[in-house]
Write a protein that binds this DNA or RNA. Structure first.
Lengths: 247, 247
DNA sequence: CGTTACCTTGAATCTCCTCAATACACGTGG
DNA sequence: CCACGTGTATTGAGGAGATTCAAGGTAACG
């Protein structure tokens, strides 16, 4: 067996010790190490998975931010979700033949790369990891359902509050939050595209949100001054945090 | 082993021979038969999976229609998706401890019931079926992503056209469509709740859609007179049909 | 027949959108 | 150091689309 050395070997995976992530057995870790074929660095702004194309790879985000989105011919787009450290991308093209959305890097990223053909081996020999993949897919579904309810039933004001909390929570799990501060690589246009709102209306609504004094967001730094009040705006059963797997 | 006899034994499962569903090996079929613990009949209007509760069961729809939805305190609700024959329900409460949405029968239904504890056995001994579960979860995610883009980016007119085609396509796969006719147990209120629109505006928009002459919908019978024209309204990459598993 | 559920209509209102400018931050090259 | 370009944020005005309220109308059912 060729001893390839990665910059981030699986045994020393930075995700392994993060709170919120489950630990793997050494057998699982060995499998994952053999499943991994490399690391990919993507510069901010690049699209590394494309709607309609078949990717031969699966990715786990090691660092950086990305957005999953669907684009339309008329220039509009819907941002489905954001991806941070620990998120698993490209499963669709392994299960179906093609991606049905694209993924674009918001910041420079480091991705862990796996070969999609070998996913069968995973199912045959690693039932625990197979279960994890189902878990991750189901969790994505949960987040999308939440967003659907958010966009379908809430006003712009509540919608954006909900979105900000969602992003904040996901960033916190990924270990990117310092206290109540978060360096957020999103523009107002991203928020608008995620919420199905126009840029102008998003801007005005964000101003109203800031006027409450419960948050500030200046030059990419988001600070939640009063999380409790913000959460009151989005009463709707929080998405219960549990230990999650990663590959 | 007690020889329980179901009204619909797995070997004679009506879903088995439907186009669009994959066939199982006899080993798989045996496992599924042992996994099945019964059949459940639910009358129209009943909610058999509830948001926030832990269901001990997993279900496959054998016949009838259901809606998956999230309800809010203020009386509003978001319909996430509809479920027809072959759809798998309740996976969430197996993977996470609780459901994060509810499921309600629109018509009388027959459901195939599985025990959630035994899902581990499935992962340990039936990697093909384990893969299928991931497939089903990922496919649900795909549909939700599609709906999210639909609601977020399209006008009421296009939105509803898209929704109608989605429902029609899913019903066709389930074998419920005769030619271009479909008996649809949905009210306009269901459409409204699914699209994030008010009932009044949904009504007026449906009238505009009917005025095109491309469809009629009277007394629960939906007829697509001009599918091609309707699909033009929703240009957005059709959700590629493939053989799907069921349990 | 009367009740119920669903569909339809009109009118007043408000949220959100588009268009069009302007302002600010940041980086680049002169 | 300043002039300039680019990407992002902000403002104002006018209008389209969607909402709410409030009535009716129609089919189905007992």
């Amino acid at each position: 067996m060729p001893m390839t050395s990665f910059e981030v070997p699986c045994e020393k995976c930075p995700l392994q010790n993060r709170p919120g992530f489950r630990r793997f057995s050494s057998e699982e870790l060995n499998f994952i190490a053999s499943f991994k074929i490399g690391e990919l660095r993507v510069a901010a702004g690049n699209q590394f998975l494309t709607d309609g194309s078949a990717s031969p790879h699966l990715y786990t985000v090691l660092s950086g931010w990305a957005i999953r989105h669907k684009s339309f011919e008329n220039g509009r787009r819907q941002i489905l979700n954001i991806a941070v450290a620990g998120d698993f991308l490209g499963l669709q093209s392994s299960l179906f033949s093609e991606m049905t959305h694209s993924v674009e890097a918001l910041t420079d990223m480091i991705l862990c790369v796996f070969a999609r053909e070998r996913i069968w081996e995973l199912y045959n020999s690693q039932s625990g990891l197979a279960f994890d993949l189902t878990w991750l897919a189901a969790r994505e579904e949960q987040v999308l359902a939440d967003q659907l309810a958010n966009i379908g039933q809430r006003s712009a004001f509540h919608r954006i509050a909900h979105m900000i909390l969602l992003v904040f929570d996901r960033a916190r799990i990924a270990g990117l939050v310092q206290g109540n501060k978060l360096a957020l690589p999103l523009t107002q246009e991203h928020i608008a595209d995620a919420m199905g709102l126009s840029l102008v209306h998003t801007n005005k609504t964000l101003q109203r949100l800031r006027q409450t004094g419960w948050l500030t967001w200046d030059r990419g730094i988001l600070v939640l001054k009063n999380q409790a009040k913000l959460r009151e705006l989005t009463e709707c059963a929080a998405p219960g945090e549990r230990l999650r797997p990663y590959l």
